[in-house]
Simulated scan of single mutants.
Amino acid sequence: MTIALDQPLVETKPASGHAGIRRWLWLVAALVFVMVVVGGATRLTGSGLSITEWKPITGALPPLSTESWAAEFEKYRASPQYQLLNSGMSLGEFQFIYWWEWGHRQLGRFIGFVFLAGFLVVALRRLLPWRRTLTLFGMGLLLGLQGAIGWIMVASGLEPGMVAVAPVKLTLHLTFAGLFFASVVAFAVSLTPPRRIEQARARGAAWALLALTFVQIALGGLVAGSKAGLTFNTWPLMDGALVPPSSTLFAQSPFWENFVDNVALVQFNHRLGAYLLLALALWHVVALRRAAPGSGGAKRATAIAGMTLAQGLLGIVTLLLAVPIWAGLAHQALAFMVLAMTVVHVTRSSLLLPLGEKVPAGG
């Protein structure tokens, strides 16, 4: 990829319009970030299957009496997770996991309400061009779909013989959360024109970073869903080697199931994804700092490289400690921080002038 030499920067005035819309979108993004962390805690505490029904409206109310708590507990006692894993659990222990799942769902409802309220204001007051308003509508549909995927995920864990949700469906739930989060961040950034207009550089590498970040988050979802982080708790060796034998990586049949159900291959793929992402981030920052030292793109690339390195080190600690809750949550949270920074980088790169195009007179 060819990177152009630095071009003169032209100062522009920051846009003051759409400030309210930007604040609304950043609030939604912050809520989604909290939702991801709460979702991680719900998974790590084994709470995700404590509520066995999906009632989008009436389910907002928790049990309010001794009788309703007993009825809710009885529903859970009929689930495979209780019978196979948590038999003998007390009502107090059930209430602990129930509140985690209830809080997770309640936060999802609140995010939906905040997004819908903001969208109605934008649409009814015609604060944005219709194409952009339509984009927001599509983002709302994505948010609604994410809620439905969440229930499909939970339902997979209520099937006979299951004690946890299906790894693929957990990964789908996490990936769609990332997609919605990324769309909100990108929309908010796009409403904030940069103070300086630069020539675009290495835009393809920025997009590659974003794509690989999504892939790595999805691979992390498979690791979480299959509990692959509880095995092979050594680094850099895995099963005594940098590359485990094929008999370990492809022990299951049919062949494709190894990529989602074989904890050895699932963890190995996540390790490879981390190495590739870090290598690309480091190459990107070196290339931009050489071509355009001090530019906004170089600064963003430096931040992404630093965050990716920190995320890799945190991942190693999480693995070596066999995924304590604090490390698992920090690892998941930092992953979405890397995603946010990468989205900002890509969006800013897309707002820059193509190479060779002249800045309009007056900025």
Rank of each mutant, 00 (worst) to 15 (best):
A333D: 10
R348Y: 03
V189D: 02
L329W: 04
L278S: 12
A15E: 15
I316R: 10
Y82T: 06
R109A: 08
F113G: 06
I316D: 01
A287K: 14
Q7I: 06
A164G: 05
A291L: 07
V184P: 09
W102D: 11
L314G: 09
R126F: 05
V36S: 02
A327T: 14
G138V: 10
L321T: 14
A155W: 04
W256G: 01
H284N: 15
H173N: 07
L179Y: 01
T52D: 06
L179F: 08
L128T: 08
S349F: 03
Q106I: 13
G220I: 01
M139I: 15
T66Y: 03
E101F: 03
F181N: 01
A155N: 07
Y98P: 10
R201Q: 13
I217C: 05
G362N: 13
F33N: 06
V10F: 12
R203N: 11
E159C: 00
L124V: 08
T135D: 01
F232V: 01
A333R: 01
P293C: 07
R22T: 10
P360T: 02
T58W: 15
F232K: 00
A340G: 02
P14Y: 02
P63K: 08
H345F: 13
N233S: 04
E53D: 15
A155Y: 08
I111P: 00
N258M: 06
K169R: 15
E101Q: 14
N269Q: 14
P293N: 09
P194L: 03
L64H: 06
T66M: 05
L210A: 11
L230D: 00
V10L: 05
D261P: 03
T318W: 02
K75R: 08
L172H: 12
A123D: 10
G178S: 09
V343I: 04
F119E: 13
P324Q: 03
T12L: 08
G240L: 04
P14I: 01
Q106A: 15
G108R: 02
W99M: 11
P360N: 03
M307C: 09
R348M: 07
A361F: 09
R22S: 09
N258Q: 09
P193V: 04
E257K: 15
M139D: 08
I21E: 14
L61C: 01
A186L: 07
P244Y: 12
A30P: 04
I3S: 13
L210K: 01
E72D: 00
P193H: 10
I152R: 11
R290T: 12
I3C: 14
P8S: 09
I149V: 15
P236N: 11
S65D: 13
A29H: 06
S226K: 00
L219R: 05
V28N: 09
A340S: 01
W283I: 10
V163K: 03
R348V: 09
A41G: 15
A281L: 11
W326F: 07
T342L: 04
W207M: 07
A123Y: 11
A211K: 01
R132N: 08
P354K: 00
S50D: 11
V28T: 13
K75H: 09
A298W: 05
P245L: 04
E72W: 04
V317Y: 11
S68R: 15
R203P: 14
G40H: 03
A291E: 15
K169H: 12
G48D: 02
A251Y: 14
F110Q: 06
V344H: 00
A148E: 12
M153D: 04
